[in-house]
Amino acid sequence: MFWSEASRRTVIHRLHPFVKMAVGIGFTGFALCLREPSALALLLGFLLSTFVMARLRPSGRRILFAALFLGAVTGLNFWAARDPSHAAAYCLRLAVFLLAIPVCAGTTAPQELTRALARTPLPPGMVVALMLVWRFFPLMAAEVQQMRQAARLRGRACGGALTRLYRGLVVPMAFCVLDYTDRITLALELRGFSPEAGRTCRRQPAAGAADAGFLLLALGTVLAAGWLQWGGGAP
């Protein structure tokens, strides 16, 4: 996954993947409608609390990158509009977007997500394809890292920057996609996978009281943010 997971499963990890996804999607969509910094800050506060409860530990480099990114965006916004409230709202909205991702992605194992998706009318092939993307994305990223290392060793002796990019990264990645396809297809079929046949599912996630509680809290936050934006709290 893109986010480093907590070392042990917290209550956030145990929530139904669709509940977490709904909150992530809902907050992202709602943040697009808000312009009041205090309302956006409230959404951000909820997401931050979830983030802390899930014991997600982003690396220092990632925090630094996010801070620089948000700082640059805020600075550019302020420079363009000369309106601190507008710049703050833009920055907070982006922060909501960034934090809404790990609510689901950082606390849900690919296997859990695919198990939840197995209950939907999606074809089994589609569900397994999704699982394959999550499973092999890090492997592919590691391969790209090695390609870049090989390119660093070659230096400028092997042509200009474009040639090196093309021959050293683009072409190997295309071969990599085909290699993965051949190997994974064979391995999947050897494990009895058929895109047409139905599959059973071990430990399919089911929604419970904790999910209802989490949804209610999220809904409460959304209502409060809405009140700050359009109700008596708005200037």
Partner: peptide
């Protein structure tokens, strides 16, 4: 699988 790898 090929579609999944292209998506990746």
């Amino acid at each position: 699988v090929f579609a999944a790898m292209t998506a990746a």
